[in-house]
Amino acid sequence: MTLSRRKTLALLGGGFILAAGTATGLRVSRKPGTALEPWQQAGGYEDSRMNALSYAILAPNPHNRQPWLVDLATSDQITLLVDTNRMLPHTDPFNRQITIGLGCFLEVLRMAASHQGQRAEITTFPDGYDDAALDQRPVAVIKMIADPTIIPDPLFDHVLDRRTEKEPYDLTRRVAQSSLDILIQAGRSTTLSGSVDPADIAAMRAICEEALVIEIETPRTYKESVDLFRIGAKEVNANPDGIDFTGPLFEAMGATGLFSRTSALDSSTASFKAGMEAVLDNTRTAMGFVWQVTPTNTRLDQLAAGADWVRLHLAATGAGVAVQPLSQALQEYPEMTRLYDDVHKKLAPTGGTVQMLARLGYTAPVPPSPRWPIDAKIVNA
């Protein structure tokens, strides 16, 4: 039995932490007894740091790069670093999106600690930072402090259920303003906004569609995603990060050569064209949009954006609303400059940086027929 994506966190100095919530699913395929013991510890470690981390690694992050490194050498302390080998240099040249993912990680860790009666005292970038690129300096130092007065964060209840829904949404179901309000009220330190107005939806669908086309038709940015395709269980287990394609359909297509990283890059094929339409189908079924603005664009802003973003997504999970980031128009590379400027004029007219943009809706009642798998999994997880 091998572990699937986003299930373990390797520790600096040796050892690993298993993601919370995995034990139940693994019991059906492993024999009972001692073989199950490591999985039964998930979410229930004696070390409260490991317990909190087993939830934090379920946080959303771009392309599921899982860029976190953790050092537990100092008692009652967690040092979070970033793996600079897991950056996205073409679509995220300044590591802004990676930093947002690290902010998501820290917020889920904080929530998990609150449910253990502990306060996670987080000091971010204790040795400073560079806005141009992340480096080997710590992202954060977290001290776990027992606090009987702490109030458990209610959004934590949805951590194990949160998913990024990457299928077409139900065009017959509108997102109510009251549901949108629940999402945007979940933030604490950034400005969350959104719209379910049909005119705004149409305008944002068009912008997001054009941005997706630009990313896919720009060879280096598209190849960055394709290089992270994990086709079939064997590849996923060997590299449990990136963009996974598993299940009987993808196993068969991978085994027969119908789907490979090479074929995915060939824009002359019918499968590529069908894949492009599949991506755009998702954008075209947006039934609302939500976005996030910070006053500036420092690393501290980006970490705050991540914290509020995962809070929004957890609130959406609780409200039954599906969310999928569509942040291509926010990416800082030359081919996207015009759309980047257009989005900022529309969504941040008084200034600031739009950090995240996502579509909202409800999953369709009947799953769509299998399609060539260039689905919108190419966007942030």
Score class of each variant (00 low, 15 high):
239 N>C: 12
54 S>C: 13
222 Y>I: 02
192 L>V: 06
23 A>N: 11
351 G>R: 07
190 T>L: 01
3 L>I: 02
122 I>Y: 04
320 G>V: 08
221 T>M: 01
93 P>N: 06
378 I>Q: 07
291 W>L: 04
332 E>Q: 13
345 K>N: 10
271 S>L: 10
47 D>Y: 01
333 Y>S: 10
17 I>L: 13
317 T>W: 04
165 E>P: 01
300 L>N: 09
178 S>N: 08
227 D>R: 14
335 E>R: 15
253 M>N: 06
170 D>A: 10
138 P>S: 05
161 D>M: 13
167 E>A: 15
243 I>Q: 08
44 G>M: 11
118 Q>V: 03
370 P>T: 02
165 E>R: 14
355 Q>F: 10
127 D>V: 08
281 D>I: 04
379 V>R: 12
195 S>I: 00
298 T>K: 01
153 D>S: 07
257 G>F: 06
139 V>R: 11
264 A>F: 14
170 D>N: 14
221 T>H: 08
273 K>W: 00
123 T>F: 07
258 L>N: 13
95 N>F: 06
250 F>M: 13
107 E>I: 03
320 G>Q: 12
316 A>N: 05
91 T>H: 05
201 I>C: 06
297 N>P: 05
377 K>V: 11
10 A>T: 11
130 D>A: 06
43 G>N: 08
311 R>N: 06
99 T>P: 03
244 D>W: 12
111 M>G: 01
232 G>D: 07
11 L>R: 09
115 H>Q: 11
375 D>W: 11
222 Y>Q: 14
204 M>K: 11
125 F>Y: 08
338 R>P: 00
353 T>H: 13
197 D>K: 13
376 A>H: 09
193 S>N: 15
3 L>T: 03
248 P>T: 12
332 E>F: 04
357 L>C: 09
274 A>Q: 10
296 T>A: 13
133 A>Y: 05
304 A>W: 02
275 G>A: 05
294 T>S: 15
363 T>L: 15
249 L>I: 10
25 G>L: 06
87 M>Q: 12
39 W>T: 13
346 K>N: 02
113 A>I: 00
193 S>K: 15
47 D>S: 03
206 A>Q: 14
21 G>N: 12
121 E>T: 00
91 T>W: 08
89 P>C: 12
16 F>Y: 10
27 R>T: 01
25 G>N: 14
358 A>M: 11
10 A>V: 09
325 P>G: 12
218 T>V: 07
284 R>M: 05
135 D>L: 04
162 R>K: 08
10 A>G: 06
303 L>I: 05
48 S>L: 14
35 A>E: 15
59 A>Y: 04
174 R>C: 08
73 A>R: 15
272 F>M: 05
96 R>W: 09
231 I>R: 10
309 W>F: 11
343 V>K: 11
345 K>G: 08
239 N>P: 02
180 L>R: 09
251 E>F: 01
110 R>C: 01
317 T>G: 09
111 M>R: 07
310 V>L: 08
136 Q>E: 06
170 D>W: 04
58 L>H: 05
304 A>H: 05
26 L>W: 01
38 P>E: 03
355 Q>D: 03
233 A>M: 15
190 T>P: 00
199 A>D: 10
17 I>E: 07
153 D>L: 04
227 D>N: 12
16 F>T: 09
110 R>V: 00
74 T>F: 02
281 D>N: 14
